[in-house]
């Protein structure tokens, strides 16, 4: 798909991309951390907490990305995604199940008709160190098997060496291979290190056709820290103002508690705006988070904290 919203000549060369990305306003690290810490002190209680928990559950991309993932494990996760709490049918289903590409077919089968999407990591996840052909083949296979969403990784080595054009072209190529599937572009912010890099990589991915920008693979620490999510939310907010296109954000990795999730929602609400409080535009990549959300949900509704034995492992 031709890029119609980027400035003309943006991708003519590495030099033009560099001039554009380095012309974006910088990010002051101390200030960004301070703003994120300030928003983390918001007190979300009672009805607001109940709203936040249900919203967070609906935004979860329930994830299993292990070498040990078996068909049985994927089916179990799929069942959990549709009925997170078998004892309480009022709990909404999660947004998607996220698996490796060779497990897509099993997940699709298990989730047919449930309303839960199947997302697949692709492009030599998590390192991204493979020939482009292999990455594209990985993507096509996942799409052919029924994945509605593709979570790709960028080539951090290329980005850090200043080869922005290579990163851009890989994203556009994967986007093309995605067809109708939504593309989430994983920046692996823990390897980009600076917030300036996070902002530049966000804009690069958005111009290259990302539907979502995602913080991390979950395999590198630090992952989805609040300041990183803040910088990415500022990026999607400003990108919409500049181009009219609304891009989603997906923090992944390190979000384990209800408190973490609520803090992310506060950030979305106050930085990007309430328009982004929607599973179509904000996702949380997580596995253990879901049970904590369920426990807090029950606690809020009944006053009793059940403990982990009352919730399914997956």
């Amino acid at each position: 798909m031709p890029d119609t919203i980027s400035p003309p000549g943006l991708t003519a060369s590495n030099a033009s991309l560099r001039a554009y990305l380095h012309g974006l306003p910088g990010v002051d690290e101390v200030g960004a951390a301070q703003r994120a810490a300030g928003l983390a002190t918001r007190s979300i209680k009672t009805t607001a907490k109940a709203q936040a928990i249900d919203l967070a559950i609906r935004m979860v991309d329930l994830t299993t990305l292990e070498g040990a993932d078996t068909p049985g494990k994927v089916r179990a996760l799929a069942a959990k995604a549709v009925h997170p709490d078998p004892a309480d049918p009022s709990v909404p289903r999660v947004a998607a199940v996220c698996v490796y590409s060779d497990r897509v077919a099993i997940a699709v089968e298990a989730l047919r008709g449930s309303g839960v999407a199947v997302a697949s990591v692709a492009t030599a996840f998590p390192a991204g160190r493979a020939p482009l052909e292999a990455k594209l083949a990985d993507t096509r296979q996942a799409v052919a098997d029924g994945a509605a969403e593709i979570d790709m990784v960028i080539d951090r080595g290329a980005f850090l060496s200043g080869d922005y054009l290579k990163v851009y072209e890989e994203i556009t190529a994967v986007k093309e291979a995605c067809g109708d599937a939504h593309l989430k572009v994983i920046l692996e912010t823990g390897e980009l290190v600076t917030y300036d890099n996070v902002r530049r990589a966000s804009w690069l991915a958005m111009h290259a056709g990302a539907d979502f920008i995602k913080t991390s693979t979950g395999k590198v620490s630090p992952a989805a820290t609040l300041p990183v999510v803040l910088v990415m939310l500022e990026a999607v907010r400003d990108f919409r103002a500049a181009t009219g296109r609304r891009i989603g954000v997906k923090p992944a990795g390190g979000i384990r508690t209800t408190k973490d999730a609520v803090r992310n929602l506060v950030l979305v609400n106050e930085v990007a705006g309430a328009d982004w409080l929607d599973p179509a535009y904000f996702r949380i990549g997580a596995s253990s988070l879901l049970n904590d959300l369920l426990m807090q949900r029950t606690k809020l509704a009944t006053g009793v904290y059940g403990g982990p034995d009352y919730y399914t492992l997956d």
Binding site: R42, S43, I44, K45, T46, T47, A48, K49, Q51, A52, L55, L265, N269, A274, D275, L277, D278
Partner: peptide, 11 residues
């Protein structure tokens, strides 16, 4: 619309 999704309760 979004107000109904997530409105901070008095704290």
């Amino acid at each position: 619309m979004a107000d109904d999704i997530f409105t901070y309760a008095p704290a």
